[in-house]
Amino acid sequence: MINLIKMHSKIGDFAENKEIAKKLRVESIMPSLSMGDEVILDFDKVDGATQSFIHSLVSEPIRQLGDKTFNNLYFKNTNEDIKKIVTIVYRYMQESLGRDTDTNSDIQ
C-alpha cells in the first residue's frame, strides 16, 4: 500500500504549522509506516518549510521505527530548501541515535 499525502492541501505554501505536522504524523505517517506501507509526502507547490515542522513530521518515525521509516518514507517534489532541511533532520536524528550517517536519506 502507498499512502500519498499532498502537503500543499494540508499546510499551504509554507510548512511551519507544527500542529498540522503532528496530526499528519500521528494519524497518517506513523500508522502507515508501522504496517509496512510506503508513505509519500508530496511537497508540490510548497515553497518552504521550517526545521521544526520537518522535525515534528519525521523525528518520531525515525526514532520509533528506524529502518521502516528510512526504507518506506519518500519525499516528492521537494525544492532545494526543503530537501536541505529534511536532510539536516535525518542526519541529526541519526547522529543522536548513533546510526551510521554515511547513508543518505531517501529523497526523491
Binding site: K18, K22, R25, Q51, S52, H55, S56, S59, E60, R63, V89, Y92, M93, E95, S96, L97
Partner: peptide
C-alpha cells in the same frame, strides 16, 4: 544546538530538537 528545555535526550523529543534559536 541540540539542547531543548523539554528533554536531556539527544535528538530532542518528537516536537523539539533544540535547533530554533541556533538556526
Amino acid at each position: 544546538p541540540g539542547i531543548t528545555g523539554t528533554t536531556r535526550k539527544e535528538g530532542g523529543t518528537s516536537e523539539n530538537a533544540g535547533a530554533g534559536l541556533f538556526f
